[in-house]
Design a binder for these strands. Sequence first.
DNA 1: GACGAAATATACCGATCGGTATAGAAAGCG
DNA 2: CGCTTTCTATACCGATCGGTATATTTCGTC
Lengths: 213, 213
Amino acid sequence: MAAPSDVTRAELLERALDLFAAYGYDGVGVQQICVAAGVTKPTLYHHYGSKRGLLEALMRTRLGALHDALAAASARHADLSGELAAIAEATFAYAAAERSLYRLYLTLWFAPVRSEAFEVARDFHERHFATIEQVFRAAGERDPALAGQARALAAAFLGLVNNHIGLALNNYAALSPKLARQTAHVFLYGVAPRPDPAAPPRRRRGKTLRNGT
Amino acid sequence: MAAPSDVTRAELLERALDLFAAYGYDGVGVQQICVAAGVTKPTLYHHYGSKRGLLEALMRTRLGALHDALAAASARHADLSGELAAIAEATFAYAAAERSLYRLYLTLWFAPVRSEAFEVARDFHERHFATIEQVFRAAGERDPALAGQARALAAAFLGLVNNHIGLALNNYAALSPKLARQTAHVFLYGVAPRPDPAAPPRRRRGKTLRNGT
DNA sequence: GACGAAATATACCGATCGGTATAGAAAGCG
DNA sequence: CGCTTTCTATACCGATCGGTATATTTCGTC
């Protein structure tokens, strides 16, 4: 059951998350968080020890779901296309469900290397990246053409996915399973208009689309 | 000629840039910048008015070269592939020449929306984005299959380019004209090993990402 | 050399920073 | 009840925050 202190703890996390996501870790003071949560500073320090500890607890308790979803999505498909689509979809779903947290997570991805917040997030980012990299390492074993580039491929794919999420968080787009599939497709086959190899053949034989050769 | 005060101004900008890039705008105090530059606070405030003014001056005086290079790169090509390659190459060259500034610029791209530093950088980002978007709008007029997606395409391409730069700034890769061409190619045709429709037919031997020409 | 403007320093402002010593209130338990 | 443990508040710490009033130096120009 939820003891009152549990409510306090959760409230502190929630308010800290919203403030961090909006103003940045360095842009928010502990006092500000306490006021938003309706408690005083010793309470915060009793539960989380420090401002840094608060951020750590935030990520530890809520990013597990993302990593689990990614691990599940990357374990079920034999073909790279479906695997990437599933990963993109799982990431999109998580980001849509945890908008503030993912916004914070994204800002920290590119945060200054020596900043405290970046240091805290580094482990989570590395675990995230390693999961995706593993997908491409496995793909490299199946397809020699992709071998040896797992890091670069993972970075590019993750960049593409996070880019879409960044746009969606600013309401330039909506995250949907369809967009996830498109994202994976664009990554594999590009944005140039070409016949989709996964679609039913459209009687296009030997003719290229739009180059005047 | 360089008056002593010009040296002071330049030194302040340079030291502020290094500190901002490493620790983040909010993570650096004006006092810290002054010590690094060997001056005292009234000097900084005499020349730049405020901490924010310092950041604005930094971007105003040094991002013009990037925007000029992008405008030049996007005005010379008729085909999208060459245009994108030129843009990527110009961006890579700028980032390589201005590592600290581009690092700062990148962190601010994804910075929390309500942070002061993000507000300062917003105009520059929007101008940058508009330049790229214009390229895809023009491409959409030439190729109906690309019409109406200029925003999304620009965002994806910019994400891909910046992703490579981010990796390079952390020494995971080196920025080269060849990588720029690869980046444009990946964006258009994806990473999947498939024959390149724009290239003369040839026997593929597993080299996928390397196609630069 | 006189003089006014530009540039720099000394010393200080109130506010806020992250963090804490101490003690009272609440809750579980015999 | 009494005792212990957990939780929370009052009040405070030194340090640093961004910024400034004032005085002094430097410098180009006449």
